[in-house]
Design a protein around this nucleic acid. Structure first.
Length: 554
RNA sequence: GAGCUCGUAGCUCAGCAGGUAGAGCAACGCCCUUUUAAGGCGUGGGUCCUGGGUUCGAAUCCCAGCGAGCUCACCA
């Protein structure tokens, strides 16, 4: 059908796939320059423009007609009439389909309804859309198709396009921020012989000529610190990490990570830097420090700072009474006591028929409804989740799990869901921080912080461990974990230990999930909405949507 | 990996007390020289995700599979 039209277009003397078209303006340029011009002014000027674009709407009316062209996410109406473009030109107009690319030349005017319009004098065919476009009003709504056929999503759903424009702005702002502070942008290997720098399962690939397995990197961390050893005191890298794990609204197997390292800085310096960074990027991208995520307004100009311990106490469940205090963090026994007291305070649960079978109410987090606006629980009559959290924590302590690890678990269960506004949580237990430096006055805690926002983790930073002897020891501990079957435990990296042995200055390092940052800045609930081509399950030979074969091969 | 929901025309959707599929947009034909979700008249268009089963009869009910979304788990 469209093939025959293309043949007819060629008969009109138009190339089916011309090699170039010289426009005088882009559509956004025309809009910028003449959006404010009145009809009278346009008539007086009689400005002729030559523009190109994709036809997104077409309205024919006998011997005249309109069409809407789109270019770079902006639209401009054109008006084509028989007596202006001639028989050939009008014949071409009538053969056009939605989605075709054309170029037009003509003068600007305003229609009766006041819309800026090109009064076309010459019409040039540029390329055919062989497949039908999605419906003009709803656009492409099927989420799966939007991800799999992003090219259609981008020109039909301009909101989607805007997300990726903002993503590019985010990256530009990040680079500007670090460049202006004397950081050097570097690129370190993404194919590594040892996948290190994080606890995650890697993808494995193979180099044929060397006959050697390689890992796609899970983090650039260890290479970046080697560079600091080498005297590149301030480095940053923005690039992909790959982790062989499940997907969710917050995880894609390949994701973009910003990591930066600064010699002679510690985690306190990085806290200050992170605050400046988030504020700067938000302003560059959105013109304001505020953004709306999940219907909640988030403001990057006000970033709260809490220690992990303070956060646990702040969001200690109300129904557990006044049972939390700083003392409980001092020993396993103290924490046990606090947990027991809290459990004792919990009101009796309602009959189990109500709680057990009520799987559907999981969304309300098992009876605890979270108010995203602030640190308040709206209590309902059930607290099974709270009880479970306390019971599990107590059990772990009895099993001899390090108190630091249990404290971190409590934090994740009790406090993390409340961290909607950007919040820096600092001082982490040593037990869960193998690469961080301990606090000089308190070896159970390390100089580390994470930044949370929108209910998830956005970044992770610490004063880097630079003692090669201690580092080697920690690698050996990880090896022992590996022996026990933990395939996420770190491998020994002798070369990294050697690098440290040459002397890593006191250094602060941080990683920020760029995709998640873009999610916050664009109000996107799913990471797939900010990744152009998110990983989708293969569909094998199953056809998805319209194919070209029918049109091309007939 | 588990639970819930979904899969019907190119797109957005309806149809599901079981009786051989429908609307709008898009497409095709005709009318219309300032319309804009243009309008009017007419026409064509389907592997109802796939495969089984129940039934005289399945888009509809049942089972299995494939794909997706969300939630949870895992995981930074």
């Amino acid at each position: 059908m469209r093939r025959t039209k293309l043949a007819e277009i060629e008969k009109l003397g138009q190339a089916a796939y011309p090699n170039q078209f010289s426009a005088s303006h882009t559509i956004p340029e025309v809009r910028t320059q003449w959006d404010a011009a009145t009809g009278e002014a346009l008539e007086a000027e009689r400005t002729t423009v030559t523009v190109a674009g994709r036809i997104m709407a077409i309205r024919a009316q006998g011997k005249a007609g309109f069409a809407t062209l789109q270019q770079n996410g902006q639209r401009l109406q054109i008006y084509v009439r028989l007596d202006a473009v001639g028989e050939q030109g009008f014949a071409l107009y009538k053969l056009l389909d939605l989605g075709d690319h054309i170029g037009v030349s003509g003068y600007l005017f305003r229609t009766r309804t006041g819309e800026l319009t090109v009064h076309v004098e010459t019409l040039t065919f540029l390329a055919k859309a062989m497949l039908a476009l999605p419906e003009k009003f709803h656009g492409l709504a099927d989420v799966e198709l939007r991800y799999r056929q992003r090219y259609v999503d981008l020109f039909t759903n301009l909101d989607s396009r805007e997300v990726f424009v903002k993503r590019a702005k985010t990256l530009r702002a990040l680079r500007e921020f670090f460049d202006s502070r004397g950081y050097l942008e570097v690129e370190t290997p993404m194919m590594q012989q040892i996948a290190g720098g994080a606890a995650a399962r890697p993808f494995i690939t193979h180099h044929n000529a060397l006959d050697q397995d390689l890992y796609l990197r899970i983090a650039p961390e260890l290479y970046l610190k080697r560079l600091v050893v080498g005297g590149l005191d301030r480095v940053y890298e923005i690039n992909r990490n790959f982790r062989n794990e499940g997907v969710s609204t917050q995880h894609n197997p390949e994701f973009t990570m910003l990591e930066f390292y600064q010699a002679y800085a510690n985690y306190k310096d990085l806290i200050a830097l992170t605050k400046d960074l988030l504020k700067f990027v938000a302003e560059q991208v959105n013109g304001t420090t505020k953004t709306v995520f999940n219907d909640v307004e988030i403001d990057f100009a006000h970033i709260e700072e809490l220690t992990m311990r303070e956060a646990i106490i702040k969001w200690w469940p109300k129904e557990a009474g006044n049972t939390a205090s700083m003392i409980m963090f001092e020993s396993s026994e103290a924490l046990q006591q606090a947990l027991l007291a809290a459990l004792h305070n919990l009101p009796e649960a309602e009959p189990s028929a109500d709680t057990k079978g009520d799987v559907a109410s999981e969304t309300s987090r098992d009876g605890v409804i979270i108010d995203p606006a602030g640190p308040t629980y709206v209590e309902t009559r059930r607290h099974p989740r709270t009880a479970m959290v306390f019971t599990a924590a107590g059990g772990h302590l009895e099993d001899g799990v390090p108190v630091g690890k249990v404290i971190a678990e409590l934090f994740e269960a009790i406090a993390e869901p409340h961290l909607i506004q950007p919040t820096i949580i600092y001082e982490f237990p040593t037990a869960i921080s193998p690469l961080s430096k301990q606090k000089p006055d308190d070896p159970d805690w390390v100089e580390r912080f994470e930044i949370y926002c929108g209910g998830f983790e956005l970044g992770n930073a610490f004063s880097e461990l630079n003692d090669p002897v201690e580092q080697k020891k920690r690698f050996e501990q990880q090896l022992a974990e590996r022996e026990r079957g933990d395939d996420e435990a770190h491998q020994m990296d002798e070369d990294y230990v050697r690098a440290l042995a040459y002397g890593l200055p006191p250094t602060g390092g941080e990683g920020i999930g760029v995709d998640r940052l873009v999610m916050l800045l664009t109000g996107s609930r799913s990471i797939r909405d900010v990744i152009l081509f998110p990983l989708m399950r293969s569909q094998g030979n199953r056809d998805q949507g319209p194919g070209i074969s029918d049109e091309v091969q007939g």
